[in-house]
């Protein structure tokens, strides 16, 4: 009898210890999951950037496109038929204008009085920038500037290269059918 109760006792001790260990462990993993999020860690060597602006260059500004951050206006700087810089000068050097649901006093938001530091959303401005840039390049062509070089060889000032379709990278005659529209839909 005594041995049986001892075995039982042992069993309960082991059983409850095991259960509590499991529970504590599960709790810790949960806390870890929900705990303070750490900052990013991606190592990266960096290359120096050498900004330079060349004189005797022409700057052509594209059409303005509306974005949540204000109007996006791209400009290109052309020298000797080469795009030497692309820029978007009209993005304000201030926090992005914040827009909220129309019922929330829009004027106050635009004036920046909302306590909101950023808006997370699908990328608007790349498309706006591209459109504005395209119009700048088109304008450059009509103004007698023929662009022959790749945008890739451009020297940028404080900006980098935008996403520019091939037809503008090539710069000669650009028909829409330059795109290969075939794609398989199987």
């Amino acid at each position: 009898m005594t041995s049986l109760s001892k075995i039982l006792q042992k069993f309960f001790v082991i059983f409850f210890t095991a259960v509590s260990v499991v529970l504590v462990f599960a709790g810790i993993t949960r806390i870890k999951k929900e705990g303070v999020l750490a900052t990013a860690t991606t190592p990266e060597g960096t290359a120096p950037l050498s900004p330079s602006v060349l004189s005797s260059a022409t700057t052509i500004t594209g059409k303005a496109y509306q974005t949540p951050w204000g109007n996006a206006v791209a400009s290109i700087t052309v020298k000797d038929g080469k795009i030497i810089a692309t820029n978007m000068p009209s993005i304000p050097d201030s926090p992005p204008s914040v827009y909220a649901e129309p019922f929330l006093v829009e004027q106050a938001l635009r004036a920046g009085s909302a306590n909101i530091q950023g808006v997370s959303g699908a990328t608007y401005t790349s498309i706006a920038f591209k459109s504005s840039l395209e119009s700048a390049i088109a304008k450059a062509n009509t103004e007698g500037q023929s662009i022959t070089a790749n945008i890739g060889s451009a020297i940028t000032t404080s900006t980098a290269k935008p996403a520019v379709p091939k037809k503008y990278r090539k710069g000669n005659d650009h028909d829409d059918d330059e795109w290969d529209d075939d794609h398989d839909d199987d």
Binding site: V36, L37, A38, T39, A40, Q66, P68, V98, Y99, A100, E101, P102, E106, N115, I116, Q117, G118, V119, S120, G121, A122, Y124
Partner: peptide, 24 residues
């Protein structure tokens, strides 16, 4: 940091906002 979430159907609207520290 108060970060708002853009409304999908209205570029002038937000649908939510969160307070973030040390997060993406």
């Amino acid at each position: 940091w108060n970060i708002a979430v853009q409304a999908p159907n209205n570029p002038d609207a937000i649908v939510s906002a969160v307070g973030l520290k040390n997060a993406g």
